[in-house]
Design a protein around this nucleic acid. Structure first.
Lengths: 215, 215
DNA sequence: GTCTATAGTTGGATAGAC
DNA sequence: GTCTATCCAACTATAGAC
């Protein structure tokens, strides 16, 4: 009878653990990620995870970095900064919206996470290359992160309840249609993101022109 | 000997509970908010809280709404939309940065929270009043929320470690100065926020002009 | 590298006395 | 409206067998 003590082929791998953890967090939220629960999803016992990660937080960091790794950075090779920044923001948001529950972890910053750092390196390098002064390039990296993370953290439209009686016109005179937002979440959030991104890039292009003129 | 069964003066009030909960979340994070811990801070026993709230989540929602209530909305009376939007964004971010740990809860949206709804009502109403079509006014409310929440969720600069050896130039050729960011967090985040806000408002003003021209 | 067993906390919430 | 007592579930992590 095999007591399953030491298998000849490892049952686990860091990649399998990270993938299962990401699925769990996506499906049930950060709070649902426990070592026991994760192990159960992988068909192993809880303590087995500690052969691959030292703490639960290490697993969480690895999940966060796997999301950063999904962001496309290829547009920074060659294209003009505005187009590149637009396409990057779209890819960035797309990756984060697939995993909104992990956004608060990503918001801690890149720290020592390789994919997060590659991302920061690519956008900062491309902006400096394009002619932005380093301090401005830093601001651009920061403000784009603000906008993308904010847009991925939670749906704007989905934050209103789908209940006509919830928003009394006497209390909220302009929210008469607000209960309709929840039905068209994706469309409304998508349009707001594109509107904001266009405004942001228009405004930055304006600043860039002024910068070139005075230089 | 008083067994402290039913005091003549209530020891607790919803306001006291909310204030203590906010302090706890600010100081130690969302995870530190437990009913037992919160009760201890208030000098009462854990179950006493259930005389004022039905669940822990109700307390959390009340904390979130108390933060929304701190946002100034007076600038929407009379001032031009751009100035009002700027001042509102600054006040909004200021309130949220004082309580960054509660931002993920605020990101659920206003739902049925009165202060959150007053905020949404004020900005939407003011934009429509100023001449923005309702769909655009909705987008503006959403994209401003994205930007402000993203900027309050966590520091950009503070997300890099203050360790010169952490960012190897061979791996990250443009992050040679990144370890210096952590030392000047507030200054860097503040400038990025103002840069982004100005760009956003410049871009929206541009869209508004075009809208007026074609109308 | 996986298992079992377990230590040692901590959690949300209810029942019923006063 | 606060208390005490309690239920029972869940958690991270370690020790040591195989």
């Amino acid at each position: 009878m095999c007591a399953m003590a030491r298998p000849h082929k490892p049952l686990l791998s860091t990649d399998r653990i990270v993938a299962a953890a990401a699925n769990l967090v996506d499906a049930e939220g950060l709070a649902a990620l426990s070592t026991r629960r994760l192990a159960a999803e992988l068909g192993v016992s809880g303590p087995s995870l500690y052969n691959h990660f030292r703490t639960k937080d290490e697993i969480l960091e690895a999940v966060a970095d796997s999301v950063s790794a999904q962001v496309d950075l290829s547009m920074f090779d060659g294209r003009d900064w505005r187009t590149a920044l637009h396409d990057w923001a779209v890819s960035y948001r797309s990756a984060l919206r697939d995993h909104p529950n992990i956004v608060p972890v990503l918001a801690r910053g890149p720290g020592r996470r390789p994919a997060g750092l590659r991302l920061a390196d690519a956008v900062f390098g491309a902006m400096v290359e394009a002619g932005w002064p380093p301090a401005q390039a830093t601001s651009i990296g920061a403000l784009m992160r603000y906008f993308v993370m904010g847009s991925a953290l939670g749906s704007f439209a989905g934050g209103f309840v789908d209940d006509e009686t919830a928003y009394d016109p006497a209390d909220y005179p302009h929210l008469g249609q607000a209960h309709l937002l929840a039905d068209r979440q994706d469309e409304i959030d998508e349009r707001a993101f594109e509107t904001g991104l266009t405004a942001l890039l228009d405004g930055l292009a304006h600043q860039f022109e002024q910068l070139r003129r005075t230089a």
